[in-house]
């Protein structure tokens, strides 16, 4: 057993023996490191972690963490994670995926996961591109980015995950940078410890299809002010940001959805209702 009281755990204690398919230099490696570091700091027993992902480069992360993982279908990780959490409130359920998985094909589930405010942690590795299908524009891609699929750019304004999470009822909203290991690990720790739906949107460069994103590492900066539970102030911070600010934009104590049950009835009670 790894979890011997007092023994210091390391990120390696949370790594599986499956080697990532990610390209060399991919930002996702840093996210994997930050996540396993956060789990080591929190000393959560591996078997109490549920890591649920969808489809895409980043969604492969569920195979790389030594926990109970589920690599499901495209866009539905939040729903699967909600089902798991509903029946297993004892577990720490972490849902992870990319910008396409979460904000495009899974957009509806994102809205309702925020609104439901279950005690889930949602890690989005946002690289503003579909990497696994080799470089198509995603909801967070800038409108003038040129690609095979949109040679002149999409001309469509970008999806604002933090603003939408706030409007939809998420109770913890943060942005992190893959380039800031320690800061990111701390954010993930805060997100897991927060009671309610926590969004950690992580800017993580796709070095293959968006090599220019490597410049993010230098551009990302920390917001220095304390987290707020004031929605107006949070909205100002989110919408006033150029997208390179990292930190907790909003954290509030909101009602958490967690189904409860009792065992007060028997099958005979139900059968009696039909009797004539």
């Amino acid at each position: 057993m790894i979890d011997i009281a007092g023994e210091k755990l390391s990120p390696e204690d949370y790594l599986s023996d499956v080697r990532p398919v990610w390209c060399p230099g991919c930002g996702h490696y840093f996210v994997l490191r930050a996540l396993t570091q956060a789990l080591a700091w929190l000393r959560i027993p591996n078997e109490q972690i549920g890591l649920v992902t969808g489809i895409g480069c980043s969604s492969r992360i569920s195979a790389y963490v030594d926990a109970y993982g589920f690599h499901g279908v495209h866009g539905r990780a939040l729903a699967l994670g909600a089902g798991l959490k509903a029946v297993r409130p004892d577990m720490d359920v972490i849902v992870a995926g990319g910008d396409g998985d979460g904000y495009s094909i899974g957009g509806n589930h994102f809205l309702h996961a925020c609104r439901r405010n279950m005690d889930l942690t949602y890690i989005v590795m946002d690289n503003e591109v579909y990497g696994m299908t080799k470089g198509q524009p995603s909801p967070t891609t800038e409108p003038d980015w040129q690609s095979k699929l949109a040679p002149e750019g999409t001309g469509i304004r970008r999806f604002n995950p933090l603003g939408i999470a706030l409007a939809s009822g998420a109770s913890f909203i943060a942005r992190g940078s893959a380039g800031d290991q320690k800061g990111l690990s701390r954010l993930i720790v805060e997100a897991i410890e927060h009671k309610g739906f926590s969004l950690v949107e992580i800017k993580t460069p796709c070095v293959t299809f968006r090599p220019e994103e490597k410049a993010w590492y230098k551009r990302m900066r920390k917001i220095t002010i304390e987290p707020t539970d004031d929605m107006i102030l949070a909205a100002q911070r989110i919408h006033g940001s150029d997208g390179f600010d990292t930190g907790i934009f909003y954290q509030a104590d909101l009602p958490v959805f967690q189904p409860h049950f009792t065992e007060e009835k028997s099958i005979e009670d139900f059968e009696k209702e039909f009797e004539v």
Partner: peptide
Amino acid sequence: EDELAAINMAIGGSFG
């Protein structure tokens, strides 16, 4: 929120 979610929630519950 929709049937896509319903079946995935059921799968999540069963996995649990």
